[in-house]
Structures are given as structure tokens and as C-alpha cells.
Nucleic acid binder design. Structure first.
Length: 1145
RNA sequence: GCCCGAGUGGUGGAAUUGGUAGACACGUUGGACUUAAAAUCCAAUGGGCAUUGCGCCCGUGCGGGUUCAAGUCCCGCCUCGGGUACCA
């Protein structure tokens, strides 16, 4: 009988299921390990060989970890909501639940056949009310939370409400939509509806009018990552932009944390890169260009006079914000940086340098946390003020931060004195104890930040309005401003360089002041020769001059109505209109025209740009097209600037030296960026800032098959259901289509109201809702009282190894990280990042077989003869092809149209061509795992999928090689059993050569599994089997450990061998063999001897031979003579146990 | 355009830190066993020149460089794959 995989696999799969071998519970005696596969969506087509690739790899690792004594959580479940089941429902009327159930059963059956060690008792399905109860619950928590930028975390909305009741919103720094300022009295006088409306601007789950990707064919909106090239990812239908009231999640609040978190996790560089691109952080500056004539007020706001500075329209020398800065009582005769006089400076500066060189532990620690604007304030250390050297100072906030070391205990009096002097100088002093800094650094940093934040409130005008930027724009009194002018009041030690001031633009336009733009290249400001607004920009209609109005309006209307698709296909076409208005370049004081063009996007930055045609390709094309001036401001080092009018493209200017740029001329680009930011801050027209490309996640879908929102409406405002009313179950509907009035399918549900009769939300949640936190539910899947218990979370923590395809890089992996961070803020989960290590398995591509039909005939010509004819290549089912040889009879019967096919053969065979492409039905190249399991067994399939190539690499599927691994298993079987299936394992003591083979293999296999190099592991097994066969080894001392070694890869096979050797089942938790270096020791090493780097012969020498003797042996070897003859030996390189290289010449 | 990643025999791939390029497997060829096939086993298999044993030359996408030594490091290209895009 031999190796009867069919019987063996069926037996052990049954055994594992009946004995719940892989069921896992919290066990504090063992270390935990969490291995997770990405949630599969059970499609109707079932699994093809590409799907299990990752599951096999993770299963090998999970089994290995069990052998290593870990308590392994290795669950599986289904992402059961999804469009295909719903589309099928629309077409056939079958409830998606039925389709989904059927597909899951099929998936489960297929998965079971491969022998995975999942704990199926923990299975979850997103469409199960017991599961989506917690999806809904999390949504309610998001709805009830806001993001406090000061604490940098989500906080309960109740806290915000009570702040509004007592202080209004002035002191709040939230990640939110633009909100008009209001006082506590205002708030208390608002109606409930007004209050709720304002709160929506703060909530992390909020309802708003949003520009969405609307797909009419699917009847729903799509997330950005569900749209590819203007078409829906599923189905490929056109997508258009539409303004709709939608639920969104304020993921943008987490942009920086999502970015920072990437440094802590072990993901591939490419995946981190995709996430970084998606978050799209860019550092730059926000600045305001004053308009030559003030814009018309909003029509809606006619009751309020625009806050027009009186000086507008006068000489452009006067700058709009220059007179109204947050100088807040700090005006002094001496600028702030003169914190001491020249004499004291000179006396103390060496001390300062010394102190900086040797900081105390606490100083060092705190400095690391404060430097480079890390807390949003520019902090200097060891700064001289009056006659003191203070530890840290924030000059902008006139705040001194001191660490009290032991020495201060004896000098309380001095400190008092010192504080007094500092206070006389206008500073306030905050003190921290040495131990505090060392032990609770986070707390100290937070308190410093809070203090500085608060101090702004006391000092700045408490009346910010929409017309005033919400951020204080510091005047350029910071000492940095002097660095370039060569004055020496500030320590020129280069300590505080770098770091762009971190503040967030509000994306609102300060109409009275001009046009706000975001730029990553403030250094090129002198080259800004015109401005461009997005067609959607609110200022367009207010600044357009009467003579241009008709043309501009027409352009704007056309641009707005064009679909995304059109807009994309016309990317290279330059279009735009002049508004007639002029802005003033704040540094050149020249008037520059303001245009409208659709190459500026309303959704990014402020929806307006300063155009620098010389150094930006889009601006360049635009300037050329409309004949606008181009001024070069950056020049490569050593190159003479040329006339831009002769250029064919814009000039790449990331590096170089500034020219034609006033005070920054001659600086490098990098320095010029910093100098310009300082300058505009000094002028009060702008500030350094950071922008993100990441948009809030649109969370509504106009579909049936998804989680209902636990939301009802009262007076048009959304309210969450009470948590004890969850889950809100998906109702029955008569059809899965929108209503006649265009409402989503849930509007068809009867009695879709609360018990009080309030209407419930009729949108449903998108696909990523249920998959964002599923890894948490696996920790405690049957908990009815909570998402998961604290105990379970504290034991299982986060996923140690996450395996899945990189198609989820931008979508799922960002949403899930956001979801987790939010729950972390709530104190529900104990880890900030959900996935510690992530591996993207490569895709398995299809290998299509092709036949060549002679054009216009029924004759098919074999691959190598095809060039003699005019042929047409056709895909043929890979099931009809074996080793590229076509089964011609099978082909004739395959499809009616080939019934009368004739063949032109080569050497009696019809050879097919092939092509590597996506595995798909239409290409007849889908390989179904069931057929392979039928033919070779699951263990062979597992081995072969791993043997194909590196896990992370894409690779073509080719069944040809599977015979090799099958032969390998049969060969191993022969080590244990003879032809009559009798066990032939003996108790004889293994010899050294056998032990060496075993231990070499253990070492290799262990290393390979730990490096996820499964393909080389399979090779190592094969080498081992070949060597043991050659040694004719049937000894228990070798074969018993080998069975354990094989267990992660071929679990059924290993269980069978383990049992045959007389051991009780199961092998799955038997300790993994360790290798012993003593068996690997060699007495001699066969040195490759090279001459001038070319290997010529080998020489066996003792490993402990001294170098000199090795050299001698190499040179004296008989084979060496012909290479040395007539030449001089210049040098001999000996690397012990590696190589000998003789240099002759 | 920009950002990643990859190019090694007929094929999948190996070479973990710069140290014998092509492990392991498929395929192919020849042979053994067999009435025959399957299965199994043995041998050869990067290219070229030589084959009387030797042997020698060339070879990791291309062109340079560093080094005693380069698939591996550096510079400049080419090709393919992926991501992303009027992102200021």
C-alpha cells in the first residue's frame, strides 16, 4: 500500500476535530503567541491554490510555536458582509445570508482538508448579530468621543460638553471641522438641535455633507481605496463625485500617530511606504497672500461686516497682520533674545557649552523629549538669562523649566532668589524634581505642554474669530532669526536646528486677509508669480472682477460638473481662467494675478496655491500656456542661471542655491526653507506647518448587506441607541434595491423605528467596519457582556504574526490600526499597535496554457511549429495539459466548437505554449486545491506551496514540480516502513554520520522557520531524506526527532509516524528537537584554493591548522604548481574555514 | 512623473556576514527493472572549446568602479512588476 495519504489525512483531521487538539484557553503558565491570517471573504468560487499559501505558512509557524511551548492563539473566521452576495441577491432574490452561509460552508470544507490547526471554537462572522453588536458598540463609542489635541487622544464628548457649558469653545484644541467660536453663554442659550449640530463637528463618528465617490451602477458610495482609475474596484463601473450626507470617521485626527506607529512595527518597507504615502505627511508652510482689493463678503453673511484692515489698498509695504500680533504684554524695549548683556554672555558661554556637553541623566532625558519642537514649542536648553543659566526655556512663552536635583535641596533660598529675578525679566518658572523626570517622563512632558498651551490662553487675545487664524503667529523675535545675520547673542551650537513648527491648518480661508496657501517650498516664494484657486474655492466668486465674471463662472461650472473620470483622462490638458483679481507677493511686493484652474484640488491643503512656474512642472505648463511670467529662484551649484523663457520643462530644484530671492539669495534650499518660515512668522503672515493627504473615512454605504447603524433621528439630529438595545439586527426587506425615491434598501424595512417611534438610520456600514477589530474579538469571542474581557486582552495583547496579501495595505491595515488606537485611548486595549509583525504573502499567478489555431481553420499547430503558420493563441483548460503536452482527445470533448479539431504534432505530441498571468476562470488557469489533495494529499500540497519560492514573492503556479515533493514524502515513508507496510525502525544506536545529518537538518529547519524561509526548509528536508536513504538509516534515534521536525510542515504525516513509533498522540505539542553543535563539528575543512580570485582546486586541511601552515600547504600542493610557475606570490589570504586565495603576478 | 521592489540555467528557485555561483526540485537525455506501462532506481544536465586523461575560456539584465575576492558593496543606465498621482 505504501504511503496512503487519503486514509492518514482523513483519520487525523477527524482526530483533531474530535479531541479539540487546537482549542486554546488563557494559560498564564505558558507564554502566549498570536498568529492571525487576514479575514477571508467567502466568495462563491471557493478557494484556489493562491488562497491557502498564507494560511499554510502561518500554520507552520503556529505549529512550530506550539512545539516550542507557546500557548498559540490561531483563530479563523469570515468577513461575511460584502458586495458579491448582495449583487447576487439583487439578481436572484436569494437572501445574502443564505448565499453567505453556503459559501462559508464550502470554504470551511476546503480549509479542513488542508489540515490547519485553527481553533474553530473561536470562529467569528461579521454578519452574526453576536459579533456585529460590538461593531455597533464601537461606533457608538466613536460617536461619543472627540479628539483632544492637547492630550493627543480621544476623550468622552461629555467632557467637551461641560467645557462648553463653562468656557465655550475658545480654549479647546480639537481635531474637528471649522467651528465658529462661542462662549459659555452662547452654548447654554443654543437649542438642543444647535448644540447637537455643533457636537457633530467634534465627534469622531460624524454626519456631514461630504464629497463622495458615488457609483450609480452599484448604487452606493465607495471608499477611496475601493476606486481604481475612476472605476469601482469591484465590477469596474464608473464612479462620480457627489455631495451626500454621510457618516465619516475622523481618522485624520490619528494621522500623526498612525505615521509614528509605523516605526514600532515590523512590516515590510514597501508596506510602510504605502501607508506613509497614504497618510501623505508633508512639511511646509501655510501663508496668506493679501489681495490687492478686498474680496466681496459672503452673501450669506451680509449682516456681518467683513473685518477689513484699514490699511488695505494703501502701499503694499504694510502687511495685513503686522500690527496685530500676540505680543501679549511682552513688548519690551529689548527684544526677547537679549536675555543678558554681552559681558555676562562672554563670561558664561563656556560654562554653557560645558553644561551642554555633560547633562545630568534627567536633563538628557527631558531634552530628548523636548528638542526639535517635539511638543510643538521651541525649547532651548542651558540658556543664559540675566546672570543665570537656566535648564530649559521656551522663549516664545517666556517660560523657564527647571529640574531640581539634589543640590537644590540645599539651595532653596538661592532658587527663590533666582525665580524672582527671572520673573522680573518677564519669565515664569516651572520646576520638576529630578526623580519625577526620571520616573515619569511622559507625565512631565505632558505637564509642560499643558502649561505652555495654557499660557497662550492667558496671553493671547481671547477673541479668536473665523477671520483670525486660530494659531498664534509668533513674531520673529525668536533667536533663530538672528542666526543668519551673524550676531552672537545665541549659542551657535546648531542644537536647535530643524523641525518645522507643527500646527494644523484649518483649511478655512481668511477672506479679509487674503488667500491662504500651503506650500512645501516656502523657499521659492520669491518665484511665486501668480496664484491659482481650485474651482470649488469659496473665494472665487467673491474676488472675480465683473468683466471676468461670465467666463470664470462658466469655467467653474464646467469643472465642477466634469466627472472624476473625465478629469483624470484630461490630466495633461491645461485649462483655467483669470479672475481679474491680484494678490501681493509678500516678499517681492509685486502684484500677481489670481487664476482659477482645476489642476488645483479643493480637497488638499487650502484649495489654493502659490504658483512657482520655474520649479514646478504643473505651474510651468500653466504659465507657458497662459503666458505668465517665470522667475528662476533656485540654481544648481556651479551652474549659471539661464533664461526661463528658453526652458522646455520646469527646473528640478530640490537641491541648489537660491538666486533672485532677496534676503535668502545665496542660501541652500534647506536653509532657505527655514529662513523663509522664520521670516513669514516674523511678518505674521504665516507659519511652518504640516499637512496630511489622509482624508476622513466615509463610513456609510447605501446597501442592504451590512451592519445597521445604532442611530436614530430626532428633530433631524442623530442620536445613539442605548447600549442595551444592541445588537440592532438587520431587518428583512422585500427587495435588495433602493426605493423609488432613491433611499437605501433599509428604507424598505417595516417598522424601522425605535420603540419611541423615532426613525432609524437607513445606511449601513462599509466592509471595513467588521474587519477593523475582529482580531480583538477572537480573544474572547463568546463574551456577551463586553467586546472582550480585560483579562483576555491583557493576556493575548496584540497579534504577534499577521499574514495576508498586500492588497489590504492601504485600506484594512490603516483602518484597523486606527480602530485599535481609538480603543487604546478609551483604555480598552492595552497595546497601541494591533499587529507587531506583518508578512505579505506573494500572489500566486496563474500559468495559462495556450494552443495555436491556424487562422480560419479547425487546425491546431504545436508550439514549436506555430511560426510557420498564421495563428491565433487560445487559452486551454490547464486540466487538459500535462507537462505542456495537450490531451488532444480531451480537448476535442472540452467544448463543442473544438469537436472537429485537427492537430499538427511535433514528435507525435501537441506541445502547448504558456503565459504567466492572473489566475482567473476566463483564462482557464485556475488551480483548485481539492483536485491536488485528491491526487497527492494535503501534506504534499502544503509542502509544495511552500517549496514554490519565497513566501513574500509573487510566483507562478506550476503543477509540474509537485511530483518532486510527493516523491520526497514517499522516500521518507520508506525510512520507516518496508514494502509490506511493516515498521522497520530499529533501536540501534545512530552513528556519527547519521547524527550529523539529523542535527544539521534540525539547525537548518529551525533557522528557516524562524526566518519564515519555508522554501529552503523544504529543500533541507529533501537533502536530509536523500542522505538518510543513502546511509540506509532506520534508527529510532534519528527517525523519531525527524517526525517532530516534519510536524509543522506535514502534520498528518508526522502524526502517523509518531503513532507508528509507539507514541501516544498527538505530536502537536511534543517539544521541538534541539540541535547539538557537537555533532556538527568537523576535523577537516575542504578549502577551495583560488588564484587571483578564481577557484582552481580543493584542499582538505585540519580546521585547527595555523594560518602559516595553511599558506604553506596551499602553495606546496601539487595542483598549485601550474598556477605559480613563472610567477611571484604576492600575497596569500587565508580565511579560516572559508577560503584560501593566492595572489600571483 | 514620483516612490518602492525585482532581474541568477530550459523552469521554480538556492547562495543567511563580500569568500567554492547554480543547492534542492522540475523538465530533458541516456541506462536498469518490465511483455508493456506506471512506480522505483542509477548517470548526465549553465554556455562554449576540447575531449586521450586532463583541462581551459565565458558566465548572476547592461556599462563602469572598490576589493586579494563582487550575484552580494558604490556610481550610471536598461527592462519588468507593484504602489501612487495634477497632493502644491
Amino acid at each position: 500500500m505504501g504511503y496512503d495519504f487519503g486514509r492518514i489525512e482523513k483519520h487525523w483531521q477527524k482526530y483533531w476535530a474530535e479531541n479539540k487538539t487546537f482549542k486554546v484557553e488563557i494559560d498564564h503558565r505558558k507564554p502566549k503567541y498570536y498568529v492571525l491570517d487576514m479575514f477571508p471573504y467567502p466568495s462563491g468560487a471557493g478557494l484556489h491554490v493562491g488562497h491557502p499559501l498564507g494560511y499554510i505558512a502561518s500554520d507552520i509557524y503556529a505549529r512550530y510555536k506550539r512545539h516550542r511551548g507557546f500557548n498559540v492563539l490561531h483563530p479563523m473566521g469570515f468577513d461575511a458582509y460584502g458586495l458579491p452576495a448582495e449583487q447576487y441577491a439583487i439578481q436572484t432574490g436569494t437572501h445574502p445570508e443564505i448565499t453567505t452561509e453556503k459559501n462559508i460552508r464550502r470554504y470551511r470544507e476546503q480549509l479542513d482538508k488542508i489540515g490547519f490547526s485553527f481553533d474553530w471554537d473561536r470562529e467569528v462572522r461579521t454578519s452574526d448579530p453576536d459579533y456585529y453588536k460590538w461593531t455597533q458598540w464601537t461606533f457608538i463609542q466613536l460617536f461619543k468621543s472627540w479628539y483632544n489635541k492637547k492630550t493627543d487622544k480621544a476623550e468622552p464628548i461629555d467632557v467637551l460638553v461641560s467645557r462648553f457649558e463653562t468656557e465655550g469653545n475658545a480654549g479647546i484644541e480639537a481635531a474637528c471641522d471649522p467651528v465658529e467660536p462661542f462662549t459659555a453663554e452662547d452654548w447654554n442659550s443654543f437649542s438642543e438641535k444647535q448644540q447637537q449640530e455643533i457636537l457633530l463637528h467634534y465627534r469622531l463618528a460624524y454626519l456631514s455633507d461630504t464629497m463622495v465617490n458615488w457609483c450609480p451602477a452599484l448604487g452606493t458610495v465607495l471608499a477611496n481605496d475601493e476606486v481604481k482609475d475612476g472605476l469601482s474596484e469591484r465590477g469596474g463601473y464608473p464612479v462620480e463625485k457627489k455631495l451626500m450626507k454621510q457618516w465619516s470617521l475622523r481618522i485624520t485626527a490619528y494621522a500623526q500617530r498612525l505615521l509614528d506607529g509605523l516605526d514600532k512595527v515590523d512590516f515590510s518597507d514597501s508596506l510602510k511606504e504605502i501607508q506613509r504615502n497614504w497618510i501623505g505627511r508633508s512639511e511646509g508652510a501655510s501663508l496668506v497672500f493679501r489681495l490687492k482689493t478686498p474680496p466681496q463678503p459672503f452673501r450669506q453673511l451680509t449682516e456681518r461686516e467683513p473685518d477689513t484692515p484699514q490699511n488695505l489698498g494703501e502701499t503694499p509695504k504694510v502687511l495685513p497682520l503686522a500690527g496685530r500680533e500676540d505680543s501679549g504684554g511682552l513688548e519690551k524695549d529689548t527684544p526677547r533674545f537679549y536675555n543678558t548683556d554681552a559681558k555676562t554672555w562672554n563670561a558664561l558661554k563656556e560654562n554653557v557649552k560645558e553644561l551642554r556637553r555633560s547633562p545630568t541623566e534627567a536633563e538628557k532625558l527631558l531634552w530628548e523629549r523636548l528638542r526639535n519642537n517635539k511638543i510643538g514649542y521651541h525649547i532651548r536648553r542651558q540658556h543664559i538669562i540675566d546672570s543665570f543659566i537656566v535648564d530649559f526655556v521656551c522663549i516664545r512663552k517666556m517660560t523657564v523649566i527647571e529640574i531640581d536635583g539634589k543640590i537644590h535641596d540645599f539651595r532653596k533660598e538661592d532658587d527663590k532668589n533666582r525665580t524672582q529675578v527671572l520673573e522680573e525679566n518677564g519669565f515664569t518658572v516651572i520646576r520638576f524634581k529630578n526623580e519625577e523626570v526620571l520616573e515619569k517622563i511622559d507625565n512631565v512632558v505632558r505637564r509642560i505642554k499643558d502649561y505652555l498651551d495654557k499660557k497662550v490662553l492667558e496671553e493671547t487675545s481671547p477673541q479668536p474669530s473665523v477671520e483670525t487664524p486660530p494659531h498664534p503667529s509668533p513674531k520673529g523675535r525668536e533667536p533663530d532669526a538672528l542666526r543668519d545675520s551673524g550676531e552672537t547673542q545665541v549659542l551657535p551650537l546648531g542644537e536647535d536646528l530643524g523641525g518645522v513648527e507643527k500646527r494644523t491648518s484649518r483649511h478655512t480661508c481668511n477672506d479679509s486677509e487674503g488667500i491662504e496657501v500651503f506650500t512645501t517650498r516656502p523657499d521659492t516664494l520669491f518665484g511665486a508669480t501668480f496664484m491659482v484657486l481650485a474651482p470649488e474655492h469659496e473665494l472665487v466668486e467673491r474676488i472675480v472682477t465683473p468683466d471676468r465674471k461670465a467666463k470664470v463662472t462658466e469655467y467653474v461650472d464646467r469643472a465642477k460638473n466634469r466627472s472624476e473620470r473625465e478629469r483624470m483622462t484630461e490630466v495633461k490638458k491645461v485649462s483655467g481662467e483669470f479672475t481679474g483679481a491680484y494678490a501681493i507677493n509678500p516678499l517681492t511686493n509685486t502684484e500677481i494675478p489670481v487664476w482659477v484652474a482645476d489642476y488645483v484640488l479643493s480637497g488638499y491643503g487650502t484649495g489654493a496655491i502659490m504658483a512657482v512656474p520655474a520649479h514646478d512642472s504643473r505651474d510651468f505648463a500653466f504659465a507657458r500656456h497662459f503666458n505668465l511670467p517665470i522667475v528662476q529662484v533656485v540654481s544648481r551649484v556651479g551652474e549659471t542661471p539661464s533664461d526661463p523663457s528658453a526652458w522646455e520643462t520646469s527646473y528640478d530644484s530640490k537641491e541648489g542655491v537660491m538666486i533672485n530671492s532677496g534676503f535668502i539669495t545665496g542660501l541652500s534650499v534647506k536653509d532657505a526653507v527655514r529662513a523663509t518660515i522664520r521670516k513669514i512668522e516674523e511678518m505674521g503672515i504665516g507659519y511652518g506647518t504640516v499637512n496630511y493627504r489622509l482624508r476622513d473615512a466615509i463610513f456609510s454605504r447605501q446597501r442592504y448587506w451590512g451592519e445597521p447603524f445604532p442611530i436614530y433621528y430626532k428633530d433631524g439630529m442623530p442620536y445613539p441607541l442605548d447600549e442595551n438595545e444592541l445588537p440592532l439586527k438587520l431587518p428583512r426587506v422585500d427587495k435588495y434595491l433602493p426605493t423609488e425615491t432613491g433611499d437605501p434598501p433599509l428604507a424598505r424595512a417595516k417598522n424601522w423605528v425605535t420603540s419611541e417611534g423615532y426613525p432609524l438610520e437607513i445606511n449601513t456600514m462599509p466592509g471595513f467596519a467588521g474587519s477593523s477589530g475582529y482580531y480583538l474579538r477572537y480573544m474572547d469571542p463568546h463574551n456577551n457582556d463586553a467586546y472582550f474581557s480585560k483579562e483576555a486582552n491583557e493576556y493575548w495583547r496584540s497579534v504577534d504574526l499577521y499574514l495576508g496579501g498586500d492588497e489590504h495595505a492601504a485600506g484594512h491595515l490603516i483602518y484597523a490600526r486606527f480602530w485599535n488606537k481609538f480603543l487604546f485611548d478609551l483604555g480598552l486595549v492595552c497595546e497601541d499597535e494591533p499587529f507587531l509583525k506583518l508578512i505579505n504573502q506573494g500572489k500566486i499567478q496563474g500559468r495559462s496554457s495556450l494552443v495555436y489555431r491556424v487562422q480560419g481553420t479547425d487546425r491546431f499547430v504545436s508550439y514549436n511549429l506555430r511560426k510557420k503558420y498564421k495563428t491565433q493563441a487560445l487559452h486551454v483548460d490547464i486540466g487538459l495539459v500535462d507537462n505542456d503536452v495537450l490531451d488532444v482527445e480531451g480537448f476535442k470533448n472540452w467544448m463543442p466548437e473544438f469537436k472537429n479539431a485537427e492537430f499538427i504534432l511535433e514528435e507525435g505530441k501537441y506541445i502547448c505554449g504558456y503565459e504567466i498571468e492572473k489566475m482567473s476562470k476566463s483564462k482557464h488557469n485556475v488551480q483548485n486545491p481539492d483536485e491536488l489533495i485528491e491526487k497527492y494529499g494535503a501534506d504534499t500540497l502544503r509542502l509544495y506551496e511552500m517549496f514554490l519560492g519565497p513566501l513574500e514573492q509573487d510566483k507562478p503556479w506550476d503543477t509540474n514540480g509537485i511530483e518532486g515533493v510527493f516523491r520526497f514524502l514517499k522516500k521518507v515513508w520508506r525510512l520507516y516502513f518496508n514494502e509490506n507496510d511493516d515498521l522497520i525502525v530499529t533501536g540501534e544506536k545512530p552513528g556519527n554520520d547519521e547524527l550529523k545529518v539529523l542535527h544539521k537538518t534540525i539547525k537548518k529547519i529551525t533557522g528557516d522557520i524562524e526566518r519564515f524561509s519555508f522554501n529552503t526548509g523544504v529543500s533541507a528536508f529533501m537533502i536530509c531524506a536523500n542522505e538518510l536513504t543513502n546511509l540506509n538509516c532506520h534508527k529510532r534515534g534519528i527517525l523519531e526527532p525527524l517526525a517532530v521536525l516534519l510536524s509543522p510542515y506535514t502534520p498528518h504525516f508526522a502524526e502517523e509516524l509518531w503513532k507508528a513509533l509507539g507514541n501516544p498522540p498527538s505530536v502537536s505539542t511534543v517539544s521541538f528537537p534541539d540541535y547539538d553543535e557537537k555533532y556538527l563539528k568537523e576535523d577537516t575543512f575542504e578549502y577551495p584554493v583560488s588564484f587571483n580570485g578564481k577557484m582552481r582546486f580543493k584542499l582538505s586541511l585540519p580546521v585547527d591548522m595555523p594560518k602559516e601552515e595553511i599558506e604553506k600547504a596551499a602553495v606546496e600542493a601539487s595542483e598549485a604548481q601550474k598556477w605559480i610557475e613563472g610567477k611571484t606570490i604576492r600575497k596569500i589570504i587565508v580565511v579560516p574555514k572559508r577560503i584560501i586565495n593566492v595572489v600571483v603576478g
